[in-house]
Design a protein around this nucleic acid. Sequence first.
DNA 1: CGTCTATTTGAATGTACTCAAAAGCGGTGG
DNA 2: CCACCGCTTTTGAGTACATTCAAATAGACG
Lengths: 194, 194
Amino acid sequence: MLYDALIKNISSSISLSAEELDIFLSMLECRTIARGAYLLEKGTICRHDHYISRGLVKVCYLDDAGRENIIKFAPEDWWVVDLDSFLNSKPAFYFIQAIEETEVFQLSRAAHDRLHSLIPQFHIFSNMRWQNGFIALQHRVMQGLSLPAEERYQQFLQKYPGLDQRISQKLIASYLGITPVFLSMLRRKWAHLS
Amino acid sequence: MLYDALIKNISSSISLSAEELDIFLSMLECRTIARGAYLLEKGTICRHDHYISRGLVKVCYLDDAGRENIIKFAPEDWWVVDLDSFLNSKPAFYFIQAIEETEVFQLSRAAHDRLHSLIPQFHIFSNMRWQNGFIALQHRVMQGLSLPAEERYQQFLQKYPGLDQRISQKLIASYLGITPVFLSMLRRKWAHLS
DNA sequence: CGTCTATTTGAATGTACTCAAAAGCGGTGG
DNA sequence: CCACCGCTTTTGAGTACATTCAAATAGACG
C-alpha cells in the first residue's frame, strides 16, 4: 500500500492505534515534484515537514562566494525539513531541491502541532528523530574536523549506500566539502592504486 | 538560591508547578569536580545528564592519530551529555573533562526516564533541547565545510562570548579543527593588520 | 547533430600541517 | 626569592592537501 513504508517508519519508535494512524495519515498531503524543482526555496518560510516516499532530494545552502554546499541528502524513507525555518517561521537559510523526480508526503506546521496535541506519542517520535539526528550530525561534525576527504568519502558511502551510483560526482564533492576537480583527482589516484 | 539559574533554564521552555519542580530538583545530585578531572571517560557508559552550574568543561574525542579534538564547550548554564552513550548504554566515544573547577547537577538515566513519565512536559523540554541542539550543530557542520579557519574563529567568539579569555589557544585551536601552531600564525597576521 | 553540463587534466597558488627549536609563563620546592 | 620544571606559545623551514583558473574531453539530452 501507498503508506506502508511510512507506517513502518513511524512504528519503529511509537505504537499507534488504528484510529491514531488514521488521524495522522489524513493530515498528510501527497505531492510529486519534478527533477530540479524545489521543495523549499531559500528565503521562504518552510511550511511543511516532508517524508520522501520516492525519489531523492538535497538540502543545500549558498556560501558567501555563491557556491552551493550540500548538507544532507534525503532519499526514500527519509524525513526532511529546514527545522529552524519550520519551527520559528524564519526565512529558510537552506533550500531543498529534487535530484530525481520525487514523491513526498507533507505535513503542514498547523497539522504538525495538532498531531502533537492530539496524540502525545508524537512527542516521543519527535524526540527520537531529533536525538538521533543530533547523534548522526555530531558524527559528521567530527569527520569534518578531523578526517581527510578520502575518509569522508568512505563515511558518505556508509551513510548513503548505493547513492554514489545515483548522483553526479559534483554533488558528492559538494557534500564532502571539496571541489569536483579535487574529487576527480582523488578518483584517478584510487584507480591507479587498485 | 542554588537552583535559580537551573529553574530559569527549564522555565524558558516549559512551565512546571511547584510540586513538579520539587520532583525534578529532588532527582538531581550535585557534584563538584576539580580542574582536569573527568565528568565522563571515553569507553565508559555515560550514566548521567549534566547541567553545569559553575565552571567549564570540554567534550572531546581522540582521532586515529591520537589527537584530542574538542566538539563542544559547556560553560555555566549549559547542559552536557554523550547522548548516544546515555540513551543507548553504549561505551562513550567522547570524553568530558573539566577545564576549570566545575559544579554540576546530574540526572541519572533512571531519574531521567522517571521524570519523563511522571511529568510529560519534560518530553517537550527534551524536544526543544535537541531540536535547538540540532539547529546549532547544523550551523557548525556548515561552517566546518565551507568557512576558512579565520571565519570559524569569529563564529566561535559569537557562540561563546568571552570564552577566548578563559581558555588557552591550544583549546581554541582544537575546537576550530586547526593546530595551535597555525592559530598562532593567524594571530600574528591579525596583529600585523590592525 | 549540436549544445550544455560534467569530468578530466595540468600548472600555479594558497591554506594548513609536521617537525624542530626557541622563547615565555606559571607553579613548586629549595 | 630564585631556580627549575613542565606546558603553552611563537617562529621558521619544508611539505602535503586542496584550491583556482583554464582548457580539453566526454556524456547527456533535446
